[in-house]
Amino acid sequence: MTAILEIEDLRKTYERGFEALKGVTLAARAGEILALLGPNGAGKTTLISTVCGLTVPTGGRARVAGHDILRDYRSARALIGLVPQEIALEPFQKVWDAVRFSRGLFGLPRDDAHLESVLRQLSLWDKRGAQTRELSGGMKRRVMIAKALAHEPRVLFLDEPTAGVDVELRRGMWETVERLKADGVTIILTTHYLEEAEALADRVGVINRGELLLVEETGALMDRMGRKELVIELHEPVAAIPAALAGYDLDLAQDGAALVYCYDRRAERTGITRLLADLQAAGLALRDLSTRQSSLEDIFVGLVQEDAA
């Protein structure tokens, strides 16, 4: 797969000396969904703003389909659609005029059929004659997306698309993002909902304090970092872990009614068979067994804490 967005050692230091980006290098492949995860203030929005032209980088460079964002800004920006985090719409403008303006701003000829399909896709067609101030929060956010799609971008930046959005709307947003991907649009989204990255993203990048800690395939990341837990529910609660089982990485849970065994599921020997045999030998009767894989959230918290240490 070819990279549609190449970011090399991108730096941004604000006038007061705050280093928002400390040399980020990242490439997005054409047609993928790349999720950027990071705590508040990590530099996600600065990264997007810099690539899109809202802020000027203090170092490094970025290219969109080979076009430098500074030297060849017209060609670069023509390919980019931006949906910022904050909803910003002219309150008295009608939805139709808003998307038409966006398209015009990119210097493209009027194309009512395209705008209609964008509005229909986002379930906004019925609202085309409404002023944006009359719309609900979820609709306003969709208008922002419609505006970003008005000029048929090949790369779409979604900055926190589901921040402060209820569960139903979030699912709807996910469907929209997946449809866009099916249309061949490369999507770079930031989020602090790990569930979102896990559900949507082909790859996940983790940013903290202006640095990109890693970028990996979502599945591979889960595999690599994923630890599994075996929860063993006991018939009779125990007060402490029996001495015979001291050699295992066990924790007591549910007030002694369960034992939790952590293991690496890619290890040659997980130790489960031996553990179960030893449990029997120790005279513990089992009620139930279940396994649980650690989520992206656990991985993320681990990474950010490591970075802080």
Binding site: C52, G53, L54, P84, A88, P91, S102, F106, K147
Partner: peptide
């Protein structure tokens, strides 16, 4: 006004 309500982002990110 666009600066105040934030819609200036669109002008800044357009090939203009």
């Amino acid at each position: 006004f666009p600066k105040f309500i934030g819609t200036i982002y669109e002008v800044l990110s357009a090939p203009v």
